[in-house]
Computed example of a mutant assay.
Amino acid sequence: MTILLVGLGAAIGAPVRYLVDRAVRERVGSAFPWGTFAVNVAGSFLLGLLAGLPAGPGAMALAGSGFCGALTTYSTFGYETLRLIETGARPHALLNAAGSVASGLCAAYGGLALAYAL
């Protein structure tokens, strides 16, 4: 049953990631990968929030592992950072790497703190 919950969450999270990334790219139109940055920070916040709530294993499988796991993307983050380096945008690559990690950690902490405050 757990694997079905993970799969259902992932079936929702992956298209959301695609749509958010696409919408952000269309609005911003920058060489910096703002779409991937946005979904990774949002997913980190949501996972931190879920971790702090009294959610059962089924809810964590569906929303945590499934939805958040498919929403966030480490592989795209790595690929886009390397592409920035290859195209000579080293400051953007450094900003993406450091900013994504720092922002993701802060977002996860913020979600956890919010859950504890509720």
Score class of each variant (00 low, 15 high):
residue 25 R to I: 04
residue 51 A to M: 15
residue 93 A to L: 09
residue 98 A to N: 08
residue 90 R to F: 08
residue 85 I to K: 09
residue 71 L to F: 01
residue 87 T to C: 11
residue 93 A to F: 01
residue 85 I to H: 08
residue 108 A to C: 12
residue 49 L to I: 15
residue 59 A to L: 12
residue 99 G to Y: 02
residue 55 A to S: 14
residue 41 V to L: 15
residue 8 L to V: 06
residue 27 R to C: 00
residue 67 F to Y: 11
residue 114 L to P: 01
residue 115 A to R: 03
residue 102 A to N: 05
residue 67 F to N: 13
residue 55 A to E: 13
residue 73 T to M: 07
residue 39 V to M: 02
residue 104 G to P: 13
residue 79 Y to K: 07
residue 7 G to F: 02
residue 28 V to L: 11
residue 22 R to Y: 03
residue 49 L to P: 11
residue 70 A to P: 04
residue 105 L to D: 14
residue 107 A to S: 08
residue 20 V to L: 07
residue 36 T to W: 02
residue 108 A to H: 08
residue 36 T to S: 02
residue 6 V to D: 12
residue 19 L to I: 12
residue 1 M to T: 11
residue 19 L to W: 11
residue 91 P to V: 14
residue 7 G to N: 03
residue 49 L to M: 14
residue 117 A to M: 09
residue 86 E to W: 09
residue 20 V to G: 01
residue 73 T to R: 04
residue 21 D to Y: 02
residue 75 S to K: 06
residue 54 P to H: 15
residue 10 A to K: 01
residue 59 A to V: 07
residue 80 E to D: 06
residue 42 A to R: 07
residue 115 A to D: 07
residue 69 G to H: 01
residue 2 T to V: 10
residue 89 A to Q: 14
residue 63 A to V: 14
residue 97 A to S: 04
residue 33 P to T: 04
residue 22 R to A: 13
residue 41 V to M: 11
residue 80 E to A: 01
residue 80 E to L: 00
residue 64 G to K: 10
residue 14 A to N: 07
residue 42 A to T: 14
residue 89 A to D: 10
residue 64 G to W: 08
residue 66 G to Q: 04
residue 8 L to Q: 02
residue 93 A to E: 06
residue 61 A to E: 12
residue 53 L to T: 08
residue 53 L to R: 15
residue 82 L to G: 05
residue 70 A to H: 01
residue 74 Y to S: 06
residue 116 Y to N: 10
residue 99 G to A: 04
residue 63 A to F: 15
residue 89 A to L: 13
residue 40 N to T: 00
residue 48 G to L: 07
residue 11 A to F: 12
residue 103 S to H: 08
residue 52 G to Y: 09
residue 81 T to W: 00
residue 87 T to W: 06
residue 10 A to F: 00
residue 11 A to Y: 07
residue 27 R to V: 08
residue 47 L to M: 15
residue 51 A to G: 13
residue 112 L to T: 05
residue 26 E to R: 14
residue 21 D to Q: 11
residue 73 T to F: 03
residue 52 G to P: 11
residue 39 V to H: 02
residue 112 L to V: 06
residue 9 G to Y: 03
residue 42 A to H: 06
residue 68 C to I: 05
residue 77 F to S: 00
residue 55 A to I: 11
residue 97 A to G: 02
residue 14 A to R: 07
residue 92 H to A: 12
residue 81 T to K: 00
residue 75 S to F: 02
residue 39 V to K: 00
residue 4 L to W: 14
residue 39 V to T: 08
residue 38 A to L: 12
residue 32 F to C: 06
residue 87 T to F: 10
residue 28 V to N: 01
residue 29 G to T: 11
residue 78 G to A: 03
residue 107 A to Q: 06
residue 22 R to V: 06
residue 77 F to I: 03
residue 92 H to F: 07
residue 101 V to W: 08
residue 77 F to A: 01
residue 3 I to G: 10
residue 52 G to F: 05
residue 70 A to F: 01
residue 40 N to S: 03
residue 88 G to V: 06
residue 5 L to M: 15
residue 118 L to D: 10
residue 107 A to Y: 08
residue 63 A to T: 15
residue 16 V to A: 08
residue 97 A to N: 05
residue 116 Y to E: 13
residue 12 I to F: 09
